[in-house]
Simulated scan of single mutants.
Amino acid sequence: MTKTVVHTASAPAAVGPYSQAIVAPAGKTVYLSGQIGLVPATGEMISDRFEDQVKQSFANMAAVIEAAGGSLASIVKLNLFLTDLGQFSIANGIMADSLPQPYPARSTVGVASLPKGAQFEIEAVIVI
C-alpha cells in the first residue's frame, strides 16, 4: 500500500513520529480495538513498568494487524491513551522504533484510567 503524507505549513508540524494526515488508497479498511499490555498466553499484564506495557501493546496490535492481513506499514491512524502524559516521550520513542515511515496520523489522549489497571492503550485504523 502506498500512503501519501499530507503536510501543510498552515498547521503545526508533527512533534514526533506521526504525520499531520495520511491519504490511503482505496482498499479494505480495518478498525482495530484498543490493545493494552496483556500477555496473550496468560491474559495478565506484562509488568507494572510503563515501557513494558507499551512494547507489549504494540506487539499485540501487530498480531491483530497481521491476522487481518496487514502489516505495521498498513496503519493510517493511531490513537494512544496514557494514564500519565509525563510518560509520553517513552511511548513516542517506542512508536518511532516500531513503525516504518511514513508514520501514520496520530492522536494522544491523557485518561484517568484504563482496563485492568493498564497505563497505556493503543488503537489503530489500517488500510490493506
Score class of each variant (00 low, 15 high):
M1N: 11
M1P: 09
T4L: 10
V6A: 09
H7A: 15
H7R: 15
T8D: 13
A9F: 09
A9S: 15
S10I: 04
P12T: 08
P12A: 10
A13Q: 11
A13C: 05
A14I: 08
V15M: 14
V15Y: 08
P17F: 03
Y18A: 14
S19D: 05
Q20N: 12
A21R: 11
I22K: 01
I22S: 00
P25W: 00
G27I: 03
K28S: 11
K28I: 13
V30W: 05
Y31N: 09
S33G: 14
I36L: 02
G37A: 03
G37R: 01
L38K: 12
V39Y: 05
P40M: 04
E44F: 09
E44R: 13
E44L: 13
M45N: 01
R49L: 07
K55E: 12
S57M: 06
F58L: 14
F58V: 13
F58G: 00
N60L: 02
N60A: 04
M61S: 06
A62F: 05
A63R: 09
A63N: 09
G69R: 08
G70W: 05
L72H: 06
L78F: 07
L80G: 10
L80D: 13
L82C: 04
T83G: 00
D84V: 05
G86V: 06
S89A: 14
N92V: 04
G93H: 06
I94C: 11
A96S: 12
D97R: 11
P100C: 06
Q101S: 15
P104L: 08
A105Q: 14
R106H: 09
S107N: 15
T108W: 00
V109I: 15
V111F: 03
V111L: 07
A112Y: 12
P115M: 10
Q119I: 01
Q119T: 05
F120C: 02
F120D: 01
E121I: 01
I122W: 07
A124N: 07
V125A: 10
